[in-house]
Design a protein around this nucleic acid. Structure first.
Lengths: 137, 137
DNA sequence: GTCTTAAATGCGACTGAGTTGCATAAGTAT
DNA sequence: ATACTTATGCAACTCAGTCGCATTTAAGAC
């Protein structure tokens, strides 16, 4: 299985998806490579609903691999207020904004939260996004 | 229906649950008064699972009233990363921390997030809480 | 207090994102 | 190539939360 070179958090330039998986001791399969390519192409977190039109695999395979990737530290996941789980390749820590009107998801880099004694995993902010506020939606 | 005086965000001292509901044009029922008393007594957000042992009503009634209260601006709700919905009486804006180990929920008053152009509703932070970090859990 | 009407409740059936069990297929090592 | 382990597809399942509907309860009129 040969792939064009990609760049995932740390594994830059010469590292491709196949090598990333091997480095993590995860078996290289067509489904996994497809998923990582899609996650890499997406500039924001995606959920199964959004991605299912672009993948042939069963949803069980999708979710099982998300768990595998999460345990390997390859991706982060969080839940929106509508019971859906969003996935994103691991990168520099940042928060996510989920719009309660249009249900869009955005990465928010501009905030820095410190909670002494706590270990922060994910930060999810809900509200009306800029577009929906402007449109008075 | 007579109740001892309580104090919910703004409706202080002389205002009881019955008057709060009347002010919001919500019919005063036993279920609603029970729920508001429990939410008032709780110092942190609660979910149906936690509260169901203390209430006699059906879960449909519980959830329908949570929606009624939310729409009336009496309470706020958010979802944890385990598909459960937590409810809390509306008060000064603050974030919530949900521990991924012990699943405990805490109110976090010490952070202040500004996102120009956005309208922030709820902020949920996931991670390991102080106790679980200390216990290396 | 009783009557009337609109809304709330309880029950059971349903929903839908995500999970699980199992037989089969596909990687990986020998 | 062969054996062995792990991943996949399918269908059945889970479970927090929702919905439809018959019955009960609150609130205003008399």
């Amino acid at each position: 299985m040969r792939l064009s070179c990609i760049s995932i958090f740390g594994y830059t330039y010469a590292m491709n998806i196949e090598n990333l998986l091997k480095k993590k001791h995860i078996k290289v399969t067509t489904a996994r490579v497809t998923l990582l390519k899609l996650l890499e192409a997406a500039s924001k977190p995606v959920c199964y609903e959004e991605i299912k039109g672009n993948i042939a695999m069963d949803k069980a395979t999708f979710y099982r691999n998300m768990i595998t990737f999460e345990e390997a530290g390859i991706l982060n996941a969080f839940e929106s207020n509508s019971k859906m789980r969003y996935f994103e390749l691991e990168r520099t820590p940042h928060a996510h904004f989920v719009c309660t009107v249009c249900h869009g998801v955005e990465c928010i880099e501009s905030i820095d939260i410190q909670l002494p004694g706590y270990e922060i995993g994910t930060i999810v902010i809900h509200g009306r996004c800029r577009s929906c506020v402007e449109a008075r939606a």
